[in-house]
Design a protein around this nucleic acid. Sequence first.
DNA 1: AATGTCATGTAACTAGTTACATGATTTA
DNA 2: TAAATCATGTAACTAGTTACATGACATT
Lengths: 185, 185
Amino acid sequence: MEERSILGFALLGLLEKQPMSGYDLRKIFASSAMGSFSDSPGAIYPALGRLEKRGLIRGALEGSSSLRRRRVYRITPKGMAAFKAWLRKPVTRDDVIRHSNHLMLRFAFMDQSLGAEHAVRFLNEFADEVAGYLPSLRQYLEMHGSGMPFSGRLAVEFGMQEYKTLLRWARKSIALYERRRRNET
Amino acid sequence: MEERSILGFALLGLLEKQPMSGYDLRKIFASSAMGSFSDSPGAIYPALGRLEKRGLIRGALEGSSSLRRRRVYRITPKGMAAFKAWLRKPVTRDDVIRHSNHLMLRFAFMDQSLGAEHAVRFLNEFADEVAGYLPSLRQYLEMHGSGMPFSGRLAVEFGMQEYKTLLRWARKSIALYERRRRNET
DNA sequence: AATGTCATGTAACTAGTTACATGATTTA
DNA sequence: TAAATCATGTAACTAGTTACATGACATT
C-alpha cells in the first residue's frame, strides 16, 4: 500500500490534524504558503479518491440531506500508520539534491505526528546530509565554473547559497528546540 | 508548437551550446549540479523524440557504420526560436511561488542565448517579484503562525529565509554584471 | 434575475518513474 | 572470458494540467 505522490502525503498530514472536505483542502493550497501545491480540482479530488481506495482516509457526506453535498474526509488508523512511516524514512542524499521540498514537508508535520524529539533527530540527519553535499557542489563549481557562461556560474552559486541557508536554518532550529525543551522543564 | 516540460527546455539549452547524444545529456544530469533532473533513459530518450518530432532538434547517426550507434542531436533554427521565446517570457508571481527552479534554469542559459543585458533585465524582474511576494509570506506567518505546530512555523520561516537569500543573490548578481560591464569598456 | 461562491467531479492530454531489454565495445 | 561501461530504447503504471460540466445556495 505504497502512496508515492507528495500531494497524497500533504493531504494525509492536513487531514490528520483535522477532518476536512476537498474544497477546504483546495483553499489551503490556494492561500499559498504551502508553496508548491496546486489547488486545481483535477489534482485534489482524484488524489482523495486514491487515498480512500487504499483505505488511508474515509469520506462521509455531512449533515442533513438539504445541505450542500460536502464530503468530509478523515484519516484512518491505516492512514496514520502510512503517514508516520513516511515521516520516519531516513534522509537520503537524493532527497537533499532532488526533493528538498519533500523533506521540508515531512518536517513541517513532524512534531505534530511524532513529537519534538523526532523532529530534532530529523533536523540533525538533514543538516548532516546537506553538510556532506555542499563540498561536492563547491568542487563542481571550481572544476566546471570556468567553462560555463557567467549566468550559469551565478546560478550554481545560488544553489550553494541555498544549501548554506538550509544548513544555517537547520542548526538554528535545532538550537530553538533545545531552548524550548529547557524552558519547559 | 508549445513545449511545456522543463526537461525539454533544459535539453534545448544544452544542445544549443553543443550538439550531443542522449547519453551525453544523461551524464550531465547524473553528475548533479543541474539539480532536479532525472538522468533516467525513460525520461531523456522520449523527451528527445518529442523535441525531434516537433522539429526543434534533429538527430543524426554519427560516424562510420562500424562505430557504436550514437545519435547526435543538434538544435534547429526553429528550436532556437522556441528556446529564446521561453527565455523571454515575463516573470510571474506564480513562477516565483511554484516554479522558481524554472526561473533559475532560464537564467542559467540567459546570457549565453540572449546576452548580458537581457540577463540583467531578467534579474531585475525576478528581484521585484520576489520583493513583492515576501511581505505576504511574512503576513501569513503572523496571521497563522500561532495556530501551527512548531515545526510548521519553522518550515514557513525557512521559506522566508529562502526568498531572502534569493533576493540578496539577485541583487548581488546585478551588481556583478554592472562591475563586469564597467571593466570591459 | 443575474452574478458569485460553494462544492464536486470527469476526460483528454502530457509526462515522469521504474523496470526491463538489447547489443556493442572496453577493461580486468 | 567475465564484468563493466557505452548507448539506446520500450512498456506499464501513475499522476498532474487544463478545461469543461453541473448544480446548490447566497448576495446584489
